[in-house]
């Protein structure tokens, strides 16, 4: 039989959070139902659709494939953590809007996190082929857009990441 609840302490979008959770609680459910950060969506709960993608210690991961207890001590970033401190849309989010890269918006948080990780790690993304960008996005399913506008938005946001990267290194 299960033992009792386990304490977890982690940082989410820069804020320290603590809770007692059952070991079997999925990280996706923890984020949505315990922390009430409902921007992270659950689409398949078996690691295919990518709607629940979050950053765990900087790495984009499916939050439905982790238990909350495994995130003890981790730094998590969800879609709510992407915008600026004043709530202004980040360049990637703005690009999604400009390019009509979302329709129902359900897959969007996962795409934003995946694209954010890709652009952060790929300073020359703007020069990459469509096939490479599409490959980077292929871990997220979208049923509305046909992906074309998402590819366009990622391309549009690329220079902002390169500049931010240069800024950081300076």
């Amino acid at each position: 039989m299960a033992d009792g609840k386990v304490a977890v302490a982690l940082t989410v979008n820069g804020e320290r959070r603590e809770a007692l959770v059952e070991p079997r609680l999925l990280l996706s459910d923890f984020i949505r139902h315990v922390l009430r950060l409902t921007g992270t969506h659950v689409g398949c709960e078996h690691g295919v659709c990518g709607a629940c993608t979050v950053l765990v210690d900087g790495a984009a991961c499916r939050s439905c494939l982790l238990f909350a207890v495994q995130a003890n001590g981790a730094e998590i970033v969800t879609v709510e953590g992407l915008a600026g401190p004043d709530g202004a849309l980040a360049p990637l989010q703005q690009a999604f809007r400009d390019c009509h890269a979302l329709q129902c918006g359900y897959c969007t948080p996962g795409f934003l996190i995946s694209a954010h990780a890709f652009l952060r790690d790929t300073p020359d993304a703007a020069e990459r082929s469509d096939a490479e960008i599409r490959s980077a996005l292929s871990g997220n399913l979208c049923r509305c857009t046909g992906y074309q506008a998402i590819v366009k938005a990622v391309r549009q946001a690329a220079p902002a990441y390169r500049e931010a990267g240069l800024e950081e290194r300076r």
Partner: peptide, 21 residues
């Protein structure tokens, strides 16, 4: 016109049924 409903969806502030608690 870029969509008026996008900003909240992009910020994770949509209100889907499972978000109601």
């Amino acid at each position: 016109l870029p969509r008026l409903e996008d900003a909240r969806l992009l910020a994770g502030r949509g209100r889907f049924t499972d978000d109601v608690h």
